[in-house]
């Protein structure tokens, strides 16, 4: 059985788990994707789930969102088991979610404005003027002013991601899930997305779960990094400890993806000061 952050890292002992996967197993046909996965997401923290392509990172995310159910095991979100929650309970739990999908999943027949306004219109009984103010504020935060009447197909990939992020945070969710947020973007656009993520999280204080293989860049933003390999979460550790882990899967992952150990910003500063 794999370990959880609370078991592995003394720093997490005082933290509360907001999402918890207990002995989760999932197979598609004869292909076992998740094999007794145990994993916790700590409140207010940023957790990265990484791993090679095809290991089931998005499947884990879909379990947390209640879009896919495990063959066995439990998925607890705010202490509630998603597998046992009825439609209404699930809907209630999801009112705390914001999601940025890999393909953004914007409503392609709606304008940018309507896309961001949709959750407000459907979930809140707000007058249209108030909705306009909130949408304008979020679009400005994403540097998307002036795109209100454009359709998603008229925007670049980076802009679409920003609209997706604006929609994900428009209701100030407690937890935001990011599925490969920088896939298909060049280095500059990826940096923009990370910066926006960093700023919005600092402003709204949400818990973030990021599925990404954009290492080591993504380490700078994370509190914990979890590696999914062979159907299991091999370990979930702060980025510095993750890079120095003795776990053979993590060692091999770090070696193949980064070549050598990556220094966090703090370590870089310390090193610079020592020199």
């Amino acid at each position: 059985m794999s370990s959880t952050p609370a078991e592995l890292n003394p720093d997490t002992k005082n933290e509360t788990a907001i999402v918890e996967l207990i002995d989760v197993e999932k197979s598609f046909g004869r292909n076992k994707v998740l094999d007794r996965v145990n994993f916790k997401i700590m409140e207010g923290k940023t957790t990265i789930i990484t791993g090679a392509s095809g290991q089931g990172k998005s499947v884990i995310l879909k379990h947390m969102l209640g879009l896919v159910y495990p063959d066995s095991g439990q998925v607890l979100v705010f202490g509630q088991d998603l597998c046992r929650a009825g439609r209404n309970k699930l809907k209630e739990i999801r009112t705390n979610f914001g999601v940025l999908f890999q393909n953004v999943a914007l409503f392609d027949s709606m304008t940018v404005y309507d896309n961001v306004a949709l959750p407000l219109r459907e979930r809140m009984a707000l007058p249209e003027e108030e909705i306009r103010d909130i949408v304008e504020e979020k679009l400005a935060l994403m540097d998307l002013t002036g795109t209100n009447d454009k359709y998603p197909a008229q925007l670049s990939g980076g802009m679409q991601k920003r609209v997706g992020l604006a929609r994900a945070i428009v209701l100030n969710p407690k937890i935001v899930f990011f599925d490969e947020p920088t896939t298909g973007l060049d280095a500059r656009r990826s940096h923009e997305i990370y910066e926006l993520f960093y700023n919005t999280q600092a402003q709204l204080g949400y818990t973030a779960v990021i599925v990404s293989h954009d290492v080591p860049k993504i380490f700078k933003l994370s509190d914990y990094v979890a590696l999914l390999a062979d159907g299991k979460i091999q370990d979930c550790l702060p980025p510095e400890k993750f890079q120095r882990s003795d776990n053979p899967h993590i060692k091999s992952f770090v070696k193949t993806t980064m070549g050598n150990i990556y220094l966090s910003e703090k370590e870089e500063i310390d090193l610079h000061e020592t020199a």
Binding site: L65, G66, L67, R87, K91, E92, R94, T95, F97, V99, F101, Q102, N103, A105, L106, F107, D108, L118, P119, E122, R123, R167, F177
Partner: peptide
């Protein structure tokens, strides 16, 4: 097409009932 491009999943995740909407 909405199903294929995850738009229905997006509705569910936004706590908007896709049946109702």
């Amino acid at each position: 097409i909405m199903r294929n491009s995850e738009q229905i999943d997006a509705l569910e995740c936004m706590a908007i009932d896709p049946y109702k909407y």
